[in-house]
Protein backbone atom coordinates (compact mmCIF):
# COMPACT_ATOMS: atom_id res chain seq x y z
CA UNK A 1 0.00 0.00 0.00
CA UNK A 2 1.20 3.46 -0.78
CA UNK A 3 2.02 5.15 2.46
CA UNK A 4 1.98 8.55 0.87
CA UNK A 5 -1.68 8.30 -0.07
CA UNK A 6 -2.68 7.85 3.50
CA UNK A 7 -2.83 11.46 4.55
CA UNK A 8 -1.14 12.29 7.82
CA UNK A 9 -4.08 14.60 8.42
CA UNK A 10 -6.46 11.73 8.80
CA UNK A 11 -4.15 9.87 11.11
CA UNK A 12 -3.23 12.75 13.34
CA UNK A 13 -5.78 15.38 14.32
CA UNK A 14 -3.08 17.65 15.75
CA UNK A 15 -1.67 18.09 12.27
CA UNK A 16 -5.08 19.13 10.96
CA UNK A 17 -5.08 22.01 13.35
CA UNK A 18 -1.74 23.19 12.13
CA UNK A 19 -2.48 23.05 8.38
CA UNK A 20 -5.87 24.62 8.57
CA UNK A 21 -4.95 27.49 10.85
CA UNK A 22 -1.58 28.24 9.42
CA UNK A 23 -2.14 28.17 5.71
CA UNK A 24 0.66 30.62 4.95
CA UNK A 25 3.28 28.21 6.22
CA UNK A 26 1.97 25.29 4.22
CA UNK A 27 4.54 22.61 3.71
CA UNK A 28 6.74 23.80 0.86
CA UNK A 29 8.36 21.85 -1.86
CA UNK A 30 11.49 20.33 -0.41
CA UNK A 31 14.69 19.58 -2.24
CA UNK A 32 16.44 16.76 -0.43
CA UNK A 33 20.11 17.35 0.30
CA UNK A 34 21.40 13.86 1.01
CA UNK A 35 25.04 14.11 2.09
CA UNK A 36 27.43 11.83 0.21
CA UNK A 37 28.02 9.93 3.41
CA UNK A 38 24.31 9.22 3.91
CA UNK A 39 23.89 8.36 0.26
CA UNK A 40 26.66 5.78 0.29
CA UNK A 41 26.95 4.52 3.87
CA UNK A 42 23.69 5.10 5.73
CA UNK A 43 20.97 5.41 3.06
CA UNK A 44 18.36 4.22 5.57
CA UNK A 45 18.60 7.64 7.21
CA UNK A 46 17.72 9.22 3.89
CA UNK A 47 14.77 6.85 3.48
CA UNK A 48 13.51 7.65 6.97
CA UNK A 49 13.86 11.35 6.26
CA UNK A 50 11.71 10.87 3.18
CA UNK A 51 9.08 8.99 5.09
CA UNK A 52 8.82 11.60 7.87
CA UNK A 53 8.75 14.59 5.54
CA UNK A 54 6.10 12.94 3.37
CA UNK A 55 4.00 12.30 6.45
CA UNK A 56 4.21 16.02 7.06
CA UNK A 57 2.78 16.67 3.62
CA UNK A 58 5.96 17.94 2.01
CA UNK A 59 6.42 17.51 -1.70
CA UNK A 60 9.86 16.04 -2.10
CA UNK A 61 12.31 16.03 -4.90
CA UNK A 62 15.81 14.68 -5.03
CA UNK A 63 18.02 16.69 -7.35
CA UNK A 64 19.95 13.82 -8.85
CA UNK A 65 22.90 15.96 -9.83
CA UNK A 66 24.00 16.29 -6.21
CA UNK A 67 27.23 14.67 -5.09
CA UNK A 68 29.21 16.07 -2.16
CA UNK A 69 28.99 19.51 -0.58
CA UNK A 70 32.77 19.70 -0.33
CA UNK A 71 33.10 19.55 3.43
CA UNK A 72 35.76 16.79 3.48
CA UNK A 73 37.97 18.85 1.18
CA UNK A 74 37.25 22.10 3.00
CA UNK A 75 37.98 20.62 6.40
CA UNK A 76 41.24 19.17 5.19
CA UNK A 77 42.23 22.59 3.90
CA UNK A 78 41.77 21.97 0.18
CA UNK A 79 39.80 25.08 -0.53
CA UNK A 80 40.03 25.18 -4.31
CA UNK A 81 38.67 21.62 -4.57
CA UNK A 82 36.02 22.46 -1.99
CA UNK A 83 35.11 25.54 -4.01
CA UNK A 84 34.56 23.40 -7.09
CA UNK A 85 32.26 21.12 -5.13
CA UNK A 86 30.44 24.11 -3.71
CA UNK A 87 29.94 25.46 -7.22
CA UNK A 88 28.40 22.15 -8.21
CA UNK A 89 26.16 22.13 -5.14
CA UNK A 90 24.94 25.68 -5.75
CA UNK A 91 24.11 24.86 -9.36
CA UNK A 92 22.23 21.73 -8.39
CA UNK A 93 20.17 23.45 -5.72
CA UNK A 94 19.75 26.80 -7.43
CA UNK A 95 16.19 28.04 -7.15
CA UNK A 96 15.08 25.47 -4.56
CA UNK A 97 12.53 26.79 -2.12
CA UNK A 98 13.72 24.73 0.82
CA UNK A 99 16.67 22.38 0.99
CA UNK A 100 16.54 19.85 3.81
CA UNK A 101 19.48 17.83 5.05
CA UNK A 102 19.66 15.02 7.62
CA UNK A 103 23.05 16.24 8.85
CA UNK A 104 23.81 19.27 10.99
CA UNK A 105 27.38 19.16 9.85
CA UNK A 106 26.68 19.30 6.11
CA UNK A 107 24.02 21.95 6.71
CA UNK A 108 26.63 23.99 8.55
CA UNK A 109 29.00 23.63 5.62
CA UNK A 110 26.52 25.34 3.35
CA UNK A 111 25.14 27.84 5.82
CA UNK A 112 28.29 28.85 7.68
CA UNK A 113 31.29 28.11 5.50
CA UNK A 114 30.17 28.62 1.91
CA UNK A 115 30.24 32.40 2.28
CA UNK A 116 33.92 32.38 3.24
CA UNK A 117 34.69 29.88 0.51
CA UNK A 118 32.92 31.95 -2.13
CA UNK A 119 34.57 35.20 -1.05
CA UNK A 120 36.31 37.08 -3.83
CA UNK A 121 34.13 35.79 -6.67
CA UNK A 122 31.12 38.09 -6.97
CA UNK A 123 28.86 35.74 -8.92
CA UNK A 124 29.55 32.83 -6.63
CA UNK A 125 29.04 34.96 -3.54
CA UNK A 126 25.67 36.07 -4.86
CA UNK A 127 24.64 32.52 -5.65
CA UNK A 128 25.68 31.40 -2.17
CA UNK A 129 23.69 34.26 -0.67
CA UNK A 130 20.62 33.05 -2.56
CA UNK A 131 20.91 29.35 -1.89
CA UNK A 132 22.54 28.94 1.53
CA UNK A 133 19.86 30.47 3.76
CA UNK A 134 17.43 27.94 2.28
CA UNK A 135 19.41 24.97 3.54
CA UNK A 136 17.83 23.53 6.69
CA UNK A 137 18.86 20.83 9.05
CA UNK A 138 16.02 18.29 9.38
CA UNK A 139 14.82 19.06 12.93
CA UNK A 140 15.22 22.76 12.33
CA UNK A 141 13.08 22.52 9.22
CA UNK A 142 10.32 20.63 10.95
CA UNK A 143 10.22 22.75 14.10
CA UNK A 144 11.12 26.20 12.81
CA UNK A 145 9.94 26.21 9.22
CA UNK A 146 6.95 23.90 9.38
CA UNK A 147 6.12 24.82 12.95
CA UNK A 148 5.41 21.21 13.86
CA UNK A 149 6.64 19.64 17.07
CA UNK A 150 4.15 16.86 17.52
CA UNK A 151 4.18 14.29 14.77
CA UNK A 152 2.03 11.84 16.61
CA UNK A 153 4.85 9.35 16.88
CA UNK A 154 5.10 6.66 19.53
CA UNK A 155 8.42 5.32 20.81
CA UNK A 156 8.25 3.94 24.35
CA UNK A 157 11.95 4.02 25.24
CA UNK A 158 14.52 5.97 27.25
CA UNK A 159 16.38 8.17 24.80
CA UNK A 160 19.32 10.55 25.11
CA UNK A 161 20.20 13.26 22.61
CA UNK A 162 23.76 13.80 21.51
CA UNK A 163 24.44 17.34 20.33
CA UNK A 164 26.59 17.33 17.22
CA UNK A 165 29.20 20.08 17.36
CA UNK A 166 28.34 21.75 14.08
CA UNK A 167 24.67 21.59 14.87
CA UNK A 168 25.22 23.09 18.30
CA UNK A 169 27.93 25.65 17.72
CA UNK A 170 27.68 26.60 14.05
CA UNK A 171 23.92 26.42 13.65
CA UNK A 172 22.94 27.06 17.28
CA UNK A 173 20.39 24.26 17.21
CA UNK A 174 19.93 22.51 20.49
CA UNK A 175 16.28 22.64 21.40
CA UNK A 176 14.85 21.58 18.03
CA UNK A 177 15.55 17.85 18.29
CA UNK A 178 14.51 17.91 21.94
CA UNK A 179 11.22 19.62 21.13
CA UNK A 180 10.43 16.89 18.66
CA UNK A 181 11.40 14.10 21.04
CA UNK A 182 9.48 15.50 23.98
CA UNK A 183 6.23 15.11 22.04
CA UNK A 184 6.86 11.52 21.12
CA UNK A 185 4.43 9.37 23.03
CA UNK A 186 6.02 7.12 25.61
CA UNK A 187 9.49 8.49 25.04
CA UNK A 188 11.50 9.41 28.10
CA UNK A 189 14.05 12.05 27.20
CA UNK A 190 17.22 11.75 29.27
CA UNK A 191 19.93 14.40 29.45
CA UNK A 192 23.32 12.72 29.71
CA UNK A 193 26.40 14.16 31.37
CA UNK A 194 28.31 16.42 28.97
CA UNK A 195 25.77 16.10 26.18
CA UNK A 196 27.56 18.95 24.40
CA UNK A 197 30.93 17.24 24.47
CA UNK A 198 32.37 16.24 21.12
CA UNK A 199 32.13 12.53 20.30
CA UNK A 200 35.58 12.68 18.72
CA UNK A 201 34.63 12.03 15.12
CA UNK A 202 35.99 15.14 13.39
CA UNK A 203 36.26 13.61 9.90
CA UNK A 204 39.84 12.73 9.00
CA UNK A 205 40.78 13.35 12.63
CA UNK A 206 39.09 10.06 13.56
CA UNK A 207 41.49 8.28 11.23
CA UNK A 208 44.68 10.29 11.71
CA UNK A 209 44.39 10.26 15.50
CA UNK A 210 42.33 7.13 15.94
CA UNK A 211 43.32 6.45 19.51
CA UNK A 212 42.55 10.00 20.65
CA UNK A 213 39.30 9.92 18.74
CA UNK A 214 38.36 6.62 20.33
CA UNK A 215 39.15 7.90 23.82
CA UNK A 216 36.80 10.80 23.19
CA UNK A 217 34.08 8.47 21.96
CA UNK A 218 34.64 6.17 24.93
CA UNK A 219 33.86 9.03 27.28
CA UNK A 220 30.65 9.65 25.39
CA UNK A 221 29.80 5.95 25.55
CA UNK A 222 30.51 5.92 29.30
CA UNK A 223 28.11 8.80 29.82
CA UNK A 224 25.45 7.07 27.75
CA UNK A 225 25.80 3.79 29.58
CA UNK A 226 25.77 5.53 32.94
CA UNK A 227 22.51 7.27 32.06
CA UNK A 228 20.69 4.00 31.50
CA UNK A 229 19.25 4.96 28.12
CA UNK A 230 18.31 2.46 25.44
CA UNK A 231 18.90 4.79 22.52
CA UNK A 232 20.98 7.80 21.69
CA UNK A 233 19.49 10.01 19.02
CA UNK A 234 21.40 12.60 17.01
CA UNK A 235 21.00 14.65 13.89
CA UNK A 236 24.40 13.81 12.49
CA UNK A 237 25.05 10.44 10.86
CA UNK A 238 28.80 10.85 11.36
CA UNK A 239 28.49 11.29 15.14
CA UNK A 240 26.24 8.25 15.18
CA UNK A 241 28.76 6.23 13.22
CA UNK A 242 31.47 7.16 15.70
CA UNK A 243 29.43 6.61 18.85
CA UNK A 244 27.81 3.49 17.44
CA UNK A 245 31.19 2.15 16.37
CA UNK A 246 32.44 2.28 19.95
CA UNK A 247 29.19 1.10 21.55
CA UNK A 248 29.09 -1.91 19.22
CA UNK A 249 32.27 -3.25 20.79
CA UNK A 250 30.95 -2.91 24.31
CA UNK A 251 28.72 -5.28 26.18
CA UNK A 252 26.16 -2.55 26.91
CA UNK A 253 22.98 -2.28 24.93
CA UNK A 254 22.71 1.39 24.02
CA UNK A 255 21.80 1.76 20.35
CA UNK A 256 22.23 4.73 18.04
CA UNK A 257 19.44 6.17 15.97
CA UNK A 258 19.13 9.19 13.74
CA UNK A 259 16.33 11.49 14.82
CA UNK A 260 14.56 11.00 11.49
CA UNK A 261 14.81 7.22 11.87
CA UNK A 262 13.46 7.36 15.39
CA UNK A 263 10.48 9.42 14.26
CA UNK A 264 9.90 7.21 11.26
CA UNK A 265 9.81 4.15 13.49
CA UNK A 266 7.53 5.94 15.89
CA UNK A 267 5.11 6.71 13.07
CA UNK A 268 4.94 3.17 11.76
Amino acid sequence: MDRRRRSPLRRNPRLVLWTSVNDATRAPEVALFIPCFVDQVTPEIGRDLVSVLERLGCRLRFPEGQTCCGQPAFNAGYRSQARAMMRHFLDVFDGAEAIVCPSGSCTAMARRFYAELAAGEAKLEEQARQVCPRVYEFSEFVVRRLGVVDLGAKFPHRVAVHDGCHMLRELRLKQEPRELLRRVEGLELVEIEDAERCCGFGGSFSIAYGMVSEAMAARKADALEASGVEYVAACDPSCLLQIGGVLARRPGRVRTLHLASLLARGLE
Partner: peptide, 19 residues
Protein backbone atom coordinates in the same frame (compact mmCIF):
# COMPACT_ATOMS: atom_id res chain seq x y z
CA UNK B 1 38.61 3.03 11.36
CA UNK B 2 37.96 -0.51 12.55
CA UNK B 3 41.07 -0.67 14.68
CA UNK B 4 39.22 1.47 17.16
CA UNK B 5 35.57 1.14 16.20
CA UNK B 6 33.10 -1.11 14.50
CA UNK B 7 32.19 -0.19 10.93
CA UNK B 8 28.63 -0.54 9.66
CA UNK B 9 28.10 -3.04 6.82
CA UNK B 10 28.07 -1.33 3.42
CA UNK B 11 24.48 -0.99 2.19
CA UNK B 12 23.50 -2.83 -1.00
CA UNK B 13 22.10 0.29 -2.60
CA UNK B 14 22.80 3.98 -2.24
CA UNK B 15 20.05 6.39 -1.40
CA UNK B 16 19.98 7.72 -4.94
CA UNK B 17 19.45 4.23 -6.35
CA UNK B 18 16.60 3.61 -3.94
CA UNK B 19 15.01 6.93 -4.84
Amino acid sequence: WTRYRQAPPPPPQAFREWW
